[in-house]
Write a protein that binds this DNA or RNA. Structure first.
Length: 415
RNA sequence: GUGGGUAUAGCCGAGAGGCCUAAGGCGCCAGGUUGUGGCCCUGGAGAUCGAGAGUUCAAAUCUCUCUACCCACCCCA
């Protein structure tokens, strides 16, 4: 038999309440911070991600779903959301709108990886991007908004990590310092890191191997090698975060895996040990839009994995809210009851009341059982005597009380 | 890409060569008299034991191959 493709999953009815809760909360928070929704296509020109995310990154090198369509164009299932948003910003001339332009999205993301807990090939992100503003106050607001999202969901015990990895002005010098430092320790590094030494020195900092970790802890820190502008930016950010009373940890080893980040980077992690520690992350990307062919436009954003959010909700025992609409189950049993049942079912639905019923004759007991397993609050019983008297037996399953009502009384009661 | 683990009905899960024409539980269906749920009781349906090959008189149980899933590394959300 067929199965859902590796690394994908069905969102089953029993999980939908979680998804709705998370997505509704995302939309609510987005509105609070004045972000508008943007949906972009599931696939894009492959070049967008190669240019945007960076050729040396793992995402581009080995995780993209890239294929040629029938016309011969190379397209890629989006492996992240920031580049598409920037593309849309440029394409639709949003630089003419009042800046910053604030956009959010809830979309599926595709990365070809070995699946494991909290890591899917198709997963979903809630993300938001603010474009056209360079102030660190906005960085702080983005971080604040991220925290607000988790807080509203009821997630606690999250750690906020922040760092500043510099800009094209100061980063080259820092990278040189870093390379000089690591050059003396090549012998102590793992194979991967030796490789990274050549390709991407920054990434040496977040290797988790014990030896490399020690090296990284003692490595030159980016925030100590910032230019005046970046330094001031970082100071403004932390000052604002303090005002917002957000607890954060400055993590020198936080560098992120996408090439487009400049200055601020941050990550949010649950306390639970082990893999997939990051639940969300983001940062500033002041050169990205330029890189994609737009005019120089700063940006800062954040994205969080919804599967991981839900995983953490479940671990924390947080349940999504239940709807409090009255659910009605219509039972019909006996001669001439079907027409009345059909009539009242339609009438209730026209009044906006959710109704379930049965379609084949079954014993009253069986129908009551079904109403019970459905969790219906009310049951309307139409048996032969009701059919004869043109009224309805209305039963409250919770209080175990029932009464005889006319159609008008019934509709009034439930609407 | 690397390493480890698992694979029995819709779900959970016993089972370690013949007594398995596969236990039990949940769920589902039907009953427990005459028109009524949740508890309880009784009965029922539902499994080519992941797939293929091999060893054997005999395999869910042993061997091999494949596949899928899980976990970790890696990476990230």
């Amino acid at each position: 038999m067929y199965q859902a493709p590796r690394g994908t999953q069905d969102k089953l009815p029993e999980d939908q309440a979680y998804w709705k809760y998370v997505e509704d909360t995302a939309a609510e928070v987005a509105a609070l911070y004045h972000y508008s929704r943007l949906d972009t296509p599931v696939f894009e020109d492959s070049g967008l991600f190669i240019r945007g995310v960076g050729e040396g990154t793992d995402i581009v090198e080995k995780e993209m779903y890239t294929f040629n369509d029938l016309g011969g164009s190379s397209v890629t299932l989006r492996p992240e959301g920031t580049a598409p948003v920037c593309r849309a910003y440029v394409e639709h001339g949003m630089s003419n709108l009042p800046q910053p332009v604030k956009l959010y999205y809830i979309m599926s993301i595709f990365r070809y990886e070995r699946p494991q807990a909290g890591r899917m090939r198709q997963f979903h992100q809630f993300g938001f991007e603010a474009l056209g503003e360079s102030s660190a106050l906005l960085d702080a607001e983005v971080i604040d908004m991220s925290c607000c999202f988790y807080k509203k969901l009821g997630l606690k015990d999250l750690t906020l990590l922040v760092n500043n990895i510099g800009c094209p002005e100061c980063r080259p010098a820092y990278l040189k310092t870093l390379r000089d430092y690591y050059r003396d320790h090549l012998g102590e590094m793992c194979e991967d890191c030796k490789n990274r030494f050549e390709k991407n020195v920054l990434r040496l900092l977040d290797c988790k191997k014990p030896n490399c970790k020690v090296l990284a802890d003692n490595a030159p820190k980016s925030i100590e090698h910032l230019c005046d502008e970046c330094s001031a930016h970082f100071a403004a950010l932390t000052k604002r975060l303090d005002q917002l009373k957000l607890d954060y940890v400055i993590d020198h080893r936080l560098v992120r895996g996408l090439d487009y980040y400049t200055k601020t980077v941050f990550e949010i992690q649950p306390l639970i040990e082990g893999a997939q520690s990051t639940i969300g992350g983001g940062g500033r990307y002041d050169k990205l839009i330029e890189e994609l062919g737009g005019k120089p436009t700063e940006g800062v954003g954040f994205a969080t994995g919804l599967e991981r959010v839900i995983l953490n909700l479940k671990r924390a025992g947080i349940e999504p809210p239940k709807s409090d609409k009255p659910d009605v189950f219509v039972i019909w049993c006996g001669e001439n009851t079907l027409d009345m049942a059909g009539h009242i079912t339609s009438a209730l639905r026209e009044n906006g009341v959710p109704v379930a019923t049965v379609y084949s004759p079954r014993s009253m007991k069986a129908q009551m059982r079904q109403a019970n397993t459905f969790g219906s609050r009310y049951v309307i019983i139409i048996g032969e005597s009701e059919a004869e008297n043109k009224n309805y037996t209305f039963k409250d399953m919770q209080n175990n009380t029932q009464e005889t009502l006319t159609e008008e009384e019934l509709l009034k009661r439930l609407s």
